[in-house]
Amino acid sequence: MQEMMNQNTLYIVMAIILVIWFGLGFYLFTLDRKIKKIEQSVNDKLFDISDK
């Protein structure tokens, strides 16, 4: 295991960066979706007020 780690340091670095990208990507995806939901509900409420 240690030998494998020493020989392929670069690929391990790459794997770690990929994990970080996947984590950040997932976060951005969910954040975007949540904001979309809030935007929709805010828009609905604004229309409610203008209707009344």
Binding site: V13, M14, I17, L18, W21, F29, D32, I35, K36
Partner: peptide, 24 residues
């Protein structure tokens, strides 16, 4: 406006491609 799903996947694709090409 909110970005389309294909757009988000395109971003993801470019970022992953960059990382793989930078380190392989």
């Amino acid at each position: 406006k909110p970005k389309a799903l294909w757009w988000k996947f395109t971003v993801f694709f470019f970022v992953i491609l960059l990382t793989v090409l930078s380190f392989l």
